[in-house]
């Protein structure tokens, strides 16, 4: 479970990015976080992955207070989160399978389980036939699928996708969303999608949290696997 308790973030230049946010996301939920530019949704993500420190309040993830985490504990905390980015953040000089395997190398998984997990993750995103292609040889949509496979391979409890469809065409965007929903339903993972694409959000009828000027404007359609 993820809880934001009266979370405020003020940047050193005085900008109030988040202003007393209260929010609970249950295990296995699928949540859209939407809002315009400067609304605070990116700050919310950065706080959740412990890239930024909160000014006041508390964020609790799986009963772990993020403010109490020591520097050295942050990487281990992040291993419980799978991150998907708008710009994919792939290693261009590596192949599709190497990109996925790299996520396991980083946390020191043994080779035996690595091979199996990489295969499973690539099967899930239907990229097994392109396992040996370099990342620049695959399309934008496939690159995002690869990023999802990498986020999923270490079996994190939470997947956070920051504008996952921002760099791909509308048709492929649906494919990406279907994939995230499949991970949510089939593997019971919590999925948080940060986006500004209202059309996409309206299509899937999931819980939608709207942020505006650092505050929660609305929180609709709550509940698990609607």
């Amino acid at each position: 479970m993820i809880e934001f308790k009266n979370v405020t973030k003020v940047y050193p230049n005085g900008t109030i990015a988040l202003d007393g946010i209260d929010l609970t996301i249950e295990d296995g939920e699928f949540v859209f976080i939407v809002g315009g530019n400067g609304s605070g949704k990116t700050t919310l993500t950065r706080l959740l992955i412990k890239e930024e420190e909160i000014t006041s309040g508390e964020i609790i993830v799986n009963e772990q207070k993020l403010s109490k985490l020591k520097h050295w504990q942050v990487p281990y905390y992040r291993r419980g989160l799978g991150m998907v980015f708008q710009d994919f953040k792939l290693l261009e000089q590596k192949t599709v399978s190497e990109n996925v395997a790299f996520a396991m190398d980083v946390i020191g998984k043994p080779k035996k389980s690595k091979d199996l997990n990489v295969k499973t993750a690539l099967e899930l995103v239907r990229l097994l036939d392109k396992a040996h292609c370099k990342t620049h040889e695959i399309s934008g949509g496939e690159r995002q699928k690869l990023a999802i496979a990498r986020a999923f391979v270490n079996e994190p409890k939470v997947i956070i996708a920051d504008e996952p469809t921002g760099n791909i065409d509308p048709e492929m965007s649906r494919g990406i969303m279907e994939l995230l929903i499949k991970i949510n339903k089939q593997f019971d993972r919590t999925v948080i999608v940060i986006t500004h694409e209202e059309q996409l959000v309206n299509f899937y009828k999931k819980r939608v949290i709207r942020i505006n000027n650092g505050k929660i404007e609305s929180d609709e359609g709550g509940g698990k696997s609607l």
């Binding site: 281990y76 290693l91 980083v106």
Partner: peptide
């Protein structure tokens, strides 16, 4: 990328 994936320092 390594930092987001959970690589230690």
């Amino acid at each position: 990328i390594m930092r987001y994936i959970g690589a230690t320092g």
